[in-house]
């Protein structure tokens, strides 16, 4: 039987479009609101990445930092984040959920405890920004044993040799970082070049679902229609900030944005 993540990719493929993956920070701007956002955007997105906010995020640009600091300031704790996931997974529009976070949060919870909670909450996958290969070998195996997809990251600096080893050790899904950038950077590489690298990965590892993230926005997304999946994060976080600043409802605005993103790749 295919797992939820692979099923989501298959469904998108059947509809001849890339899967749409969104990234929002758990607890931004409050526990309740971030759950509402997940419930709304799951009408349009195929897989939901949920950020575990961390206050020393070395790979995140301004927008995601702002969302993370806001969530932490509003008191979000690891256990609240698990609760958000399990509540969402019980909702009628539930979609696969992937955590994206920094290793210290997992380390403090204890790897085994953390995975137990992930499983109990119904989490499907995990991206750990600062636990690269081969450092992640033991932990990614643990994830596999718990039926949680450990998603390996690849970047333009990844050598061919590394690429082969990493894809070999990866589970069903891999994540290609489009350019040298933190999250939230402007797309500074041509889509053509990004697709060359993407195709190289697909050639080495044709069966794995490969998504592209970083620099994907309403403006750029339609350049990447022939891919397995696309991740939009910073633009959504920015929309939450903008809505709050203008005293508008982020749930409505973000949902509108994700619906537009979906239309652009359908």
């Amino acid at each position: 039987m295919l797992n939820q993540i692979s099923l989501a990719f298959k469904k998108a493929k059947d509809e001849k479009r890339p899967a749409l993956l969104t990234y929002t920070v758990a607890g931004d701007s409050s526990k309740k609101q971030s759950l509402e956002i997940l419930k709304e955007i799951s009408n349009y997105a195929d897989i939901l990445e949920v950020g575990i906010p961390h206050n020393t995020p070395v790979a995140d640009g301004g927008q995601i930092q702002t969302s993370s600091y806001r969530a932490i300031k509003n008191g979000i704790k690891m256990n609240d984040i698990f609760k958000i996931v399990s509540d969402f997974k019980k909702s009628k529009n539930s979609k696969p959920v992937i955590f994206m976070g920094y290793y210290n949060m997992i380390f403090q919870y204890g790897e085994n405890n953390f995975l137990k909670k992930c499983k109990k909450s119904g989490l499907d996958g995990l991206i750990v920004v600062d636990l690269p290969w081969p450092e992640n070998k033991i932990f990614s195996n643990k994830c596999k044993k718990n039926s949680i997809n450990f998603i390996q990251l690849l970047s333009p600096t990844t050598s061919n040799k590394r690429l082969k080893s990493i894809t070999k050790d990866s589970h069903d899904m891999i994540y290609y970082i489009s350019m040298l950038s933190t999250t939230g950077g402007k797309l500074k590489v041509s889509p053509k070049k990004i697709l060359v690298n993407y195709n190289k990965i697909k050639k080495i590892s044709p069966k794995k679902n490969c998504v592209i993230g970083f620099g994907i926005t309403e403006k750029t997304i339609s350049n990447f229609k022939n891919t397995d999946g696309l991740v939009v994060g910073s633009q959504i976080c920015k929309e939450i900030t903008r809505s709050l600043n203008n005293r508008q409802n982020p749930v409505i605005n973000v949902s509108k944005m994700v619906s537009k993103l979906r239309k652009k790749i359908s």
Partner: peptide, 12 residues
């Protein structure tokens, strides 16, 4: 110690 870094920094 170790190297808890994003993939992008592995090469440099």
């Amino acid at each position: 110690g170790g190297n808890f870094v994003p993939e992008t920094l592995k090469k440099p």
